[in-house]
Design a protein around this nucleic acid. Structure first.
Lengths: 191, 191
DNA sequence: GCAATTATGTAGCGATCACTACATAAAAAT
DNA sequence: ATTTTTATGTAGTGATCGCTACATAATTGC
């Protein structure tokens, strides 16, 4: 997982994997199947609920707190010196040769699910009243995930904890105003 | 440039490059040198001032307009169906095998220069008075670039023009409030 | 026209890629 | 104890990687 996380799918060779695991290619293939099977298992481990800051954050009492906690929890993980910088789902399948597009598609699907999680939490916020009823959940979620994905690049470029939290501060500064902007198809408020 | 843009440095093979250019490896090496030399030339072409939305945007009359124009100009380019999605500088050197770290370092330096450009434009805004004097230029620039970098991922994931512009709307919604937040070392305003 | 130079194509270099046939070693079943 | 099954290591598969020696073709200088 750490090798794929750091070097990406194609940047990680079987030789690197077998050396890190202390086993031979035969054993690796017997245990995990092909390279992309192993990669999927590594991504699933990365996304496991007990270690996912996103899943934990969604439980916060309000949508705003949930989004902010998601950004901060992930930001902390991105700059953790114990692990590779940034998010594995964002960074491990960007550069692919012809024939490996399914890796990108798989990771894009993971990101799409994250978007759906955040979007769902925001919708819940409008239902529970901590967000205005006309708030544009889709755009709010896209905005939150854009910042989240951007933080992966910042982390890879060496941003420290203070820096990424300052960016989260900045990202959240406009939240309330943003939430008041109704989605285009929402019914007009009765002035 | 388009091949490197789409597939990244290692995802683009010499065979792909020679096929696209219609020349043989010998001619390619005679004209451009090694693969990383060609890559650098491609990035320089990508970053050429006459086609850089960022450079054009920095000329806007206020810092806020400059940042917003930078985001919108790049966002338009990221979703242009005529070119690969997202930003070449952000996306072409993410996954690298051992031994090619200099490619990431080169692109990270490009991104650092973009940060410096935006930061410089924001500082100018504080000097010219269209931003409060204590505005935290470093954090504002980091925030703008985080959104910018995140937009590259959104574009790769298939976001369309409407979507990325909605994200830019969201990103700019908090700008004025953000600009009023003084940097930590700024002198306290009188009263 | 002829020699020197430059440009281009062919073929193949060693290295590494993901992956596997084969043989051996350990474990389980009978 | 013997056979069957499972696990593991060795060695090497064809393919492709970036790159280049060599030969030929086009161009240039005189």
């Amino acid at each position: 997982m750490r090798l794929f996380w750091e070097h990406g799918y194609e940047g990680t060779s079987l030789a690197m994997l077998t050396a890190a695991m202390g086993i031979t290619p035969t054993s690796l293939y017997a245990a995990f199947g092909a390279k992309d099977d192993l990669f999927r298992e590594a991504v699933e481990l990365y996304n496991s609920p007990q270690s996912s800051p996103t899943d934990r954050a969604m439980g916060r009492p309000t949508a705003r707190e949930a989004v902010e906690a998601m950004l901060r929890g992930n930001a902390d993980a991105y700059v953790d010196p114990e692990t590779p910088a940034g998010c594995m789902v964002v960074l491990s399948g960007v550069n692919l040769a012809e024939g490996n597009e399914h890796i990108r598609a798989y990771l894009a699907e993971c990101r799409r699910r994250d978007h759906a999680k955040v979007r769902g939490r925001i919708v819940r916020g409008t239902e529970e009243g901590d967000l205005p009823p006309g708030a544009d959940a889709d755009t709010l979620a896209s905005y939150a995930l854009t910042v989240l994905h951007g933080l992966s690049i910042q982390a890879r470029d060496g941003a420290d904890r203070e820096r990424v939290h300052a960016v989260v501060d900045a990202a959240m500064a406009g939240w309330d105003r943003l939430a008041r902007q109704a989605r285009p198809d929402a019914a007009s408020p009765a002035s």
